[in-house]
Simulated scan of single mutants.
Amino acid sequence: MKEPLPALRLYRSVGQPRAAVLLLHGGRADALEPPPALNLPLARMRPFVRAIGRATAGRPVALGRVRYGHRGWNGERADAARDARLAMDELATLAGAVPTVLVGHSMGARAALHAAGHPQVKAVVGLAPWCPPEDPVDHLAGRTVVLLHGDRDRITDPAQTWAFAARARAAGADVRELPMPGGDHAMLRGAADWHAHTTRLVLELLGTAS
C-alpha cells in the first residue's frame, strides 16, 4: 500500500484489506486552529483503537483515523465532515473500494454521519454523538447506524440523538439505539462497557460489510 495522504492516518494496514475501520475523535463547535499536539479528544479514542485493534488482529482489516485540519466544526464550513470525506477518498486510493465502518465520538460522530453517504461507508457507530436537528438524514438510506448515548451527558443532548435516530430510520437507514445508563460525555463512567459494546458492534458490522 502507498503512504497515507494528509486526511488519513493509518494505525494498521494490510497488503490487500477487505474492510476498514476509521475512528473520528471529538472537537469543538468553533475553532479554526489545528488540533493541538496534546489532544484530549484524541486521547479518549485510544482505548477504542486498542480494543478494536486486538479484536481484528490477524484479519484483513485496515485500521486508522481521520486527521482534522481544524479543531472545530465551524458552522457551514463543516470542516470535520469535509476531512472525513477526504479520508474516505484517500482510503479508496490506498486500499481500493473496501467496505468501511466509521466510529466517531461527539463532533467525530457528526462528521461520520455526514460522511456516511460515501459509497464505501457501510455503517456508522456514533458515541455520545452531536446530532443537531438541522442535520440531513436522506443520505443514510441503506446504511446501518448505531448510536450510543449516556443519560448523564451534559455536552451533547441524548434527546437530540434519539430524535435523529427516528428521522434516519424514517429515511431508510437501519438504526439501532443503545442507551448507556449513567454514561457521561467523556465516556469515563462505565468506560469498559463503552469499549466492549463498540468493539462488539464493529466486529458484527465488519461481518455484515464483508
Rank of each mutant, 00 (worst) to 15 (best):
Asp30Ile: 13
Arg154Pro: 01
His197Pro: 03
Gly53Ser: 09
Pro41Phe: 06
Pro119Arg: 13
Asp193Gln: 14
Pro179Val: 07
Arg200Gly: 14
Leu94Asp: 05
Val145Ser: 03
Ala95Glu: 12
Leu24Cys: 04
Leu113Asp: 04
Gly26Leu: 07
Lys2Asp: 14
Arg46Glu: 14
Gly53Ile: 05
Ala209Cys: 10
Ala78Asn: 14
Gly150Ala: 03
Thr144Met: 09
Gly172Trp: 01
Leu205Lys: 08
Leu206Lys: 12
Arg176His: 06
Arg154Lys: 11
Ala191Gly: 11
Gly15Met: 06
Val175Trp: 04
Gly53Val: 07
Asp30Thr: 13
Trp130Met: 01
Val145Cys: 04
Glu204Gly: 15
Arg176Ser: 09
Ala95Trp: 12
Leu147Lys: 00
Phe164Ala: 02
Gln160Glu: 12
Asp174Asn: 14
Asp153Ile: 02
Asp138Met: 06
Val137Met: 04
Arg169Ser: 15
Ala191Ile: 04
Thr198Arg: 02
Leu147His: 02
Gly64Arg: 06
Asp151His: 00
Ala159Lys: 02
Gly75Ile: 10
Pro60Val: 03
Arg77Glu: 14
Pro158Val: 00
Arg46Asn: 07
Ser13Arg: 13
Pro133Lys: 00
Glu90Lys: 06
Pro181Tyr: 06
Arg176Gly: 05
Leu32Tyr: 14
Val124Arg: 04
Gly72Gln: 01
Ala141Gln: 08
Leu127Trp: 04
Met88Glu: 13
Arg189Gln: 14
Glu204Asn: 12
Met180Gly: 04
Pro6Lys: 04
Gly172Asp: 00
Leu40Pro: 09
Arg200Pro: 06
